[in-house]
């Protein structure tokens, strides 16, 4: 239990194979109590599997760890009682009403004073007026609110949220994140996987995972600094062909088009500025040096991982 006070999640060297696919490769993570920890990575990178390993829904092939101080292999029962897990796909019962779903969850956790607990949850999440509606008839945003209410019902100390905002509109997403920060302020730890950069920037700490391996970990600033990338922003039209042209230059490690701007990144700023200046001379394009963003870094990490993975495969 001493670890439980220090870390909400502490796992070391987790491995999981499905057949001959190495889905999670030597994963080690530390999440502090009251921290919102963002879990990023491309589709199929092993985020969902990692989360399932941490809440005892899957058994690791090797490695060890604890959630809230409980061993993830031997004490899965205690973890289930103290962790709220929100699945990627809405997994409450479409053919039950909102109230019935919450009541069912409350019964599963043997909560005392059930009807009051359910009523409070409905109130807090603004679902009271829709309590009698079938869960299956809710829109994406409301389903997500219901799922959060349901996985918070037993007052877990740790939330594991697997892409909770996928397919949810921006307003609902903003409300959702405000709620997460309120929970974190109360001391609840949150591990949340996402594909959205704006969400990543709202996390206290981040981890980037690709092909089952953890590639970077730390605050947004730390991750950007660790990547050691310089970025030049090119503004103008016809950026598609410009990007292709720059991509071939040795000083350029990547180009990313954002509408009417092009981010060109490389390891060495002077070399990069020189390359861009020479290649784009006389084109009438605006060129300025900007701080490298999280998204540039993630794209860089993913590209690197893909190259490494292809290399290891060959």
């Amino acid at each position: 239990m001493t670890i439980g006070n220090e870390w909400a999640i502490a796992v070391d060297g987790l491995n999981k194979h499905f057949g001959d696919k190495h889905v999670v490769n030597n994963l080690s993570l530390r999440v502090r109590p009251g921290e919102i920890f963002g879990f990023l990575g491309p589709n199929g990178s092993g985020k969902t599997t990692s989360i399932r390993l941490m809440c005892g829904l899957l058994t690791p092939d090797s490695g060890s760890g604890s959630c809230l101080g409980y061993d993830i292999v031997r004490e899965a029962e205690q973890i289930k009682r103290n962790v709220g897990y929100m699945t990627q796909k809405f997994s409450y019962w479409d053919d039950l009403t909102i109230r019935e779903n919450l009541d069912f969850v409350a019964r599963m956790y043997e909560m005392p004073d059930r009807s009051a607990v359910v009523a409070r949850a409905l109130d807090e999440l603004g679902l009271a007026s829709r309590a009698g509606q079938l869960a299956g008839s809710l829109s994406g945003g409301w389903k997500q609110r219901l799922a959060l209410a349901a996985c918070m019902l037993h007052q877990p100390r740790l939330l594991l949220l697997d892409e909770p905002t996928a397919g949810v509109d921006p307003t609902a997403r903003r409300d959702f994140w405000a709620e997460l920060h309120r929970l974190a302020a109360k001391g609840i730890s949150v591990l949340v996987s996402t594909h959205y950069m704006d969400e990543a920037e709202r996390c206290h700490k981040l981890a980037y995972i690709a092909y089952g391996s953890l590639l970077a970990q730390g605050t947004a600033g730390e991750i950007v600094a660790a990547a050691g990338l310089a970025t030049v922003c090119v503004r103008g039209s016809g950026l598609g062909s410009v990007a292709e042209q720059l991509e071939r230059h040795p000083a350029v490690s990547q180009t990313v088009v954002f509408g009417d701007t092009l981010h060109v990144s490389g390891r060495d700023l002077p070399a990069l500025q020189h390359a861009v200046g020479v290649e784009l001379a006389g084109r009438g394009l605006g060129i300025e040096v900007i701080p490298t963003g999280l998204e540039d870094v993630f794209i860089h990490l993913m590209k690197q991982a893909r190259d490494n993975f292809a290399g290891a495969d060959a």
Partner: peptide, 13 residues
């Protein structure tokens, strides 16, 4: 099939 099994397994039932 509906994916609700994962939810059920995540509870102490």
């Amino acid at each position: 099939e509906r994916g609700t099994m994962e939810n059920l397994l995540a509870t102490p039932v």
